[in-house]
Simulated scan of single mutants.
Amino acid sequence: MQRDLQLTIRMAISFLVLTLIYLVFLGFIATYFGLGILPIAMIAGLMIGAQWFFSDRIVLWSTGTKIVSKEEFPVLHQIVESLCQKANIPKPKVGIMKSDVPNAFATGKGPKSSVVVVSLGILKILDKDELEGVLSHELTHIRNRDVTIITLASLFSTIAWFLMQSSMFSTMWGGGYGGRQQQGGNTILVLIVAGIVWFLSFLIIRAISRYREFAADRGGAYLTGKPMNLSRALMKISGEVKVAPTQELKKIEGMNAFFIIPAISGQTIARFFSTHPPIMERVKRLMQIEQELRD
Rank of each mutant, 00 (worst) to 15 (best):
T148S: 11
I149E: 10
I150Y: 01
T151F: 00
L152K: 05
A153V: 14
S154D: 11
S154G: 12
L155K: 08
F156K: 01
T158L: 13
A160F: 09
L163F: 13
Q165A: 15
S166I: 14
S166V: 13
S167C: 04
M168A: 11
M168K: 08
S170H: 01
T171A: 14
M172K: 03
W173V: 15
G174E: 10
G175K: 07
G176N: 02
Y177I: 15
R180D: 15
Q183L: 14
Q183D: 08
G184M: 15
G184W: 15
N186E: 15
N186Y: 12
V190S: 02
I192T: 08
V193M: 09
A194V: 05
G195K: 10
I196S: 12
F199H: 11
L200E: 04
S201L: 09
S201C: 13
R206C: 06
I208L: 15
R210N: 05
Y211H: 14
R212Y: 03
E213S: 03
F214S: 02
F214I: 13
A215N: 11
A216V: 05
R218T: 07
G219V: 11
G220V: 05
A221D: 07
A221M: 09
A221W: 09
T224W: 00
K226I: 04
K226Q: 14
P227M: 06
P227F: 07
M228G: 05
L230N: 06
S231Y: 01
R232N: 14
R232T: 07
R232S: 13
L234E: 00
L234C: 02
K236M: 12
K236N: 08
I237K: 04
I237D: 02
S238Y: 10
S238H: 10
G239I: 08
K242H: 09
K242L: 09
A244W: 01
P245Y: 11
E248H: 10
E248I: 01
L249F: 00
L249R: 04
K250W: 00
K251P: 00
K251Q: 10
I252D: 07
I252H: 00
I252P: 02
E253K: 03
E253L: 09
G254I: 11
M255S: 14
N256Y: 08
F258N: 12
F258P: 03
F258D: 04
F259V: 07
F259Y: 14
F259E: 11
F259D: 05
I260W: 02
I261Y: 02
P262T: 12
I264G: 04
I264A: 01
I264S: 07
I264V: 14
S265W: 03
G266Q: 06
G266Y: 08
Q267F: 13
I269F: 14
I269N: 11
A270D: 15
R271P: 11
R271H: 14
